[in-house]
């Protein structure tokens, strides 16, 4: 056998020599700010505010499970080139984002340098646990992380994204603020529109697979009577499913709400036995054909909820009718 040790040592030395200047070289500054958002929702706000000064990529697609994203090569490459990382926060990405940042070796993506922005920071989360124990399942320490499904989240996220962009690209402040102002106008109109759904749903019972719709349910004043997961992240057991079916009958719940990434076979089985229907709503922008942006996500979800509960959608006030008619 030929002993390769001399060749190996020479190869190692050669590689180290070749790599030294590569490692030390800094990437050339890009004309646009490279923004990586963990979710399509955050990417929407980054594009809406950043306009032509940003190049935005979303790590997750609209139908994917954010609790356990499968990392792909293009994900690592995008992270390695990013100037700004927008994350959902509330530990939604806790299982994969820290290691992805570590693997990407992008030191710019830190809170200290302004290259990493937690978009939920400052938002009052639901379901903050009073104690932390795995006995309660996959509980997020800071509370329910699916806050972008709250119709009230848009204004908060827009503010966080604006601050993040201005901090990294002060020259773009004027553009960012102008686009943010235009977005806030859309939010004003949308929030007024969505508020009209609240009295229609107040007190209505809801059954969900996972708790991703709790912000929407809370906003509408609905009452969650059961979740198919006995605890967050724990698969339904037959005994628990039987209890849920009983609760659906008792409260006359017309639908079981699920997200694309939930185990919709279980939801379907429950629906079949209880007489309820399965309503799959997107949990993120792009999670359904109608959810083309964040406004469409909320609008479309509310419309479909109305259909499922047999509720006539609210009529827009005359001023809005004039506005729509005048377009």
């Amino acid at each position: 056998m030929t002993n390769p040790r001399t060749l190996w040592i020479a190869l190692a030395a050669l590689l180290l020599t070749l790599l030294a200047p590569t490692s030390a070289a800094l990437p050339a500054p890009a004309a646009k700010l490279d923004v990586v958002a963990t979710t399509p929702d955050l990417a929407f706000f980054a594009e809406a505010i950043g306009g032509d000064r940003v190049d935005v990529k979303s790590l997750a697609k609209g139908r994917e499970n954010l609790h356990a994203l499968v990392v792909k090569p293009r994900t690592i490459v995008a992270m390695s080139r990013a100037d700004l990382l927008l994350e959902n926060g509330l530990s939604l990405e806790a299982t994969w984002l820290p290691d992805l940042i570590l693997a990407s070796r992008n030191k710019a993506l830190s809170y200290a340098t302004g290259g990493r922005v937690n978009c939920s920071a400052g938002f009052e989360p639901l379901e903050q646990p009073t104690s932390l124990s795995r006995k309660e399942g996959d509980v997020h320490p800071e509370g329910n992380p699916h806050f972008t499904l709250s119709p009230l989240a848009g204004r908060h996220v827009a503010g966080r994204v604006l601050a993040g962009l201005v901090a990294l690209d002060p020259d773009g402040r004027e553009l960012f603020e102008a686009r943010h102002a235009a977005l806030v106008e859309r939010l004003d109109a949308a929030e007024a529109r969505w508020a009209r759904y609240r009295p229609l749903f107040a007190g209505k019972p809801a059954v969900v697979y996972h708790q991703e719709f709790d912000y929407l349910i809370d906003y509408l004043g609905m009452q969650t009577v059961a979740t198919l997961e006995p605890k967050p992240g724990i698969a339904p057991t037959p005994a628990h499913i039987a209890r849920v079916i009983g609760l659906i009958d008792e409260h006359e719940v017309p639908v079981v709400l699920t997200a694309p990434w939930s185990n919709n076979r279980s939801a379907g089985a429950v629906a079949a036995k209880s007489g309820a229907e399965v309503l799959e709503l997107p949990a993120l922008v792009g999670g359904a054909a109608f959810a083309t942006d964040w406004f469409a996500l909320i609008d479309g979800s509310l419309e479909r909820l109305c259909g499922a509960y047999g509720i006539e959608p609210p009529k827009p006030p005359p001023a809005d009718e004039e506005s729509i008619g005048g377009r």
């Binding site: 190692a12 090569p73 490459v77």
Partner: peptide, 20 residues
């Protein structure tokens, strides 16, 4: 062990390592 990776385009990573 020495370990390094490089991106090739937007979709590919090449990684190599040498250990003693």
């Amino acid at each position: 062990q020495f370990d390094n990776w490089h991106a090739i385009g937007d979709d590919t990573i090449v990684r190599y390592s040498i250990g003693a």
